[in-house]
Design a protein around this nucleic acid. Structure first.
Length: 474
RNA sequence: CGGGGCGUAGCGCAGCCUGGCUAGCGCGCGUGGUUUGGGACCACGAGGUCGCGGGUUCGAAUCCCGCCGCCCCGACCA
């Protein structure tokens, strides 16, 4: 099998190599579309489960809305239509004839959901409405990248309706917190959070919040967004409710989502030149046991020992015995490392003699002999330790990747030489923001809750300015 | 849409410029044997409308025209 590209030489090829060779995904026959293969899908399923539990725990229910949306719906909210029209795929024929009204394949579901909310909401007693859906969406992107940006992708979109602006804002912030917790606790990726600037916010939102992570090439990646939509969609779809005082009022809304792009983020955060590195909590397999088989010897003893080893682990740990006899142990070592399985346990004749096994952790590739009887305890301790170690390393990298710049020259120099989040003084003016983007490709990733006052804007020289994180982003 | 690259066996490629014999190589795959603690080896074998359509020619993977597809780089985005 060909080796994967080296991370420090060709980062994007390295990424593609890992995704394809680890059999997470493959290119589909349609431009910009991918097939998510079982290994990649299993990771997504684990993400789904964790997130879904968190959504349920915060009072949300799942529902499902249609893939096809009447084109006129998209056009009801001015900013929304402007934002999405260019990237919509449209169905114009069905049943062998031209449709009376073209149907848009959902790029997001605000419009069809709010068309339904109009039917379901009359009174303050109907609120809040806290729905989520797991779905696929289609956006006709100009350029695609496996998992990070594809024409069709999988995601979850929460859509909530509230009686007051305060409640809705609180909801949007709560879900941002859920995303932050998920990304940090499960994906082992530290993040920045904050509000998007007007230029960067969702088409149709009053406020967009985002979770921003830093990849190993020091480019930023938006890992999740949560929007406070105000009354924009309620007005567009005429969703009013009667409040406690008996007055009619437009409903306040939020929407929030994360996508299968997170799988790509996960790959880029922890992996190395040997392949994928997965945080234990999201790994489809946490432990793989590789019996070292001999041709003529009594393999049965080794296979039995391997099975006995797996048995006490099975209840708490996702474990597999790789007993294939058509590939060598060395092959298996490389393959499971490529696939990112956190712990490998080797057991061969030499180990049987000594009553031990060899435990190898994926992140450091460190080998430790462990007495057979202590394996369950060892594994139970090691998995969380690795989860934490991945987070700590990523955190170190994030902190090293955050640097201040005071002048535009410094800013460009740091951005060019190191990348990462460059905290620079900005006056709040969209023109200054646009100029930076035009000249450097860097954007303001978010405006954190706590910002440092910073004299004069590095672009126009006017004050008061605040220090905000800029970065080149995926 | 602009710029670049590629399309030959499951994968990666050579052959094309300078047309010719039976279209090759590596990996993988099948069978048998030897192997197995970091990507084993030997033998035999299966596998191809050379992206599609047209043209030139006695003869086209190779030359000409047209088309299609994918990848990479730029403008849009989770």
């Amino acid at each position: 099998m060909a080796k994967i590209a080296r991370r420090d030489q060709d980062y994007s090829q390295w990424y593609v190599d890992i995704v394809t060779r680890a059999e997470m995904a493959d290119y589909a026959p349609v431009k910009g579309c991918m097939v998510i293969r079982p290994w990649g899908y299993a990771i997504w399923e684990r993400m789904q489960r964790a997130l879904d539990d968190m959504f349920k725990a915060t009072g949300h229910q799942n529902a499902y809305f249609p893939l096809l949306i009447p084109q006129s719906f998209l056009q009801k909210e001015a900013e929304h239509v402007e934002g999405f029209a260019p990237e919509c795929a449209v169905v114009t024929r069905g049943g062998g004839k031209e449709l009376e009204e073209p149907l848009v394949i959902r790029p997001t579901s605000e419009t069809i959901i709010w068309a339904m909310y109009k039917k379901w909401i009359q009174s303050w007693r109907d609120l809040p409405l806290l729905y989520n859906q797991w779905a696929n969406v289609v956006r006709w992107e100009m350029r695609t990248r496996l998992f990070l940006r594809t024409t069709e992708f999988l995601w979850q979109e929460g859509h909530t309706a509230h009686a007051t602006a305060g409640e809705a804002v609180e909801e949007a912030e709560r879900m941002l917190g859920v995303y932050k917790r998920f990304v940090e606790d499960w994906m082992a990726m530290p993040v920045l959070t904050g509000k998007k600037t007007d230029a960067e916010k969702f088409a149709g939102a009053v406020t967009t919040y985002s979770v921003e992570a830093l990849m190993q090439d020091n480019r930023a990646l938006q890992a999740g967004t949560s929007h406070y939509l105000g009354q924009n969609f309620a007005r567009a779809f005429d969703v009013q409710f009667q409040n406690r005082a008996g007055e009619l009022e437009y409903v306040y809304a939020t929407s929030w989502g994360v996508s299968s792009r997170l799988v790509g983020a996960l790959v880029m955060s922890h992996s190395d030149d040997a392949g994928l590195v997965l945080p234990p909590k999201l790994a489809p397999l946490e432990v793989v046991i590789v019996p070292i088989l001999k041709a003529d010897a009594d393999n049965s003893a080794i296979l039995t020992a391997a099975a006995r080893l797996a048995e006490p682990l099975q209840d708490h740990v996702r474990v597999k015995v790789d007993d294939r006899d058509n590939v060598s142990p060395g092959w298996k070592f490389n393959e499971w490392e490529l696939k990112g399985v956190p712990i490998r346990i080797e057991i061969g004749p030499k180990d049987l003699e000594k009553g031990q096994v060899v435990v190898v952790r994926r992140d450091t590739r460190e080998k430790t002999p462990v007495p057979q009887g202590e394996v369950p305890v060892h594994v139970a301790d090691l998995l969380p330790e690795m989860q934490q170690a991945l987070y700590d390393r990523a955190k170190e990298r994030l902190e090293a990747g955050c640097r201040p710049a005071d002048t535009y020259d410094d800013f460009k120099k740091i951005l060019e030489e190191q990348g990462g989040f460059v905290y620079a003084p900005w006056c709040g003016n969209a023109e200054c923001e646009a100029r930076v983007q035009e000249e450097t490709k860097a954007t303001i990733r978010c405006i954190p809750d706590e910002v440092e006052a910073a004299g004069a804007c590095m672009i126009c020289g006017n004050g008061p300015a605040q220090r905000v994180p800029f970065a080149k982003a995926y």
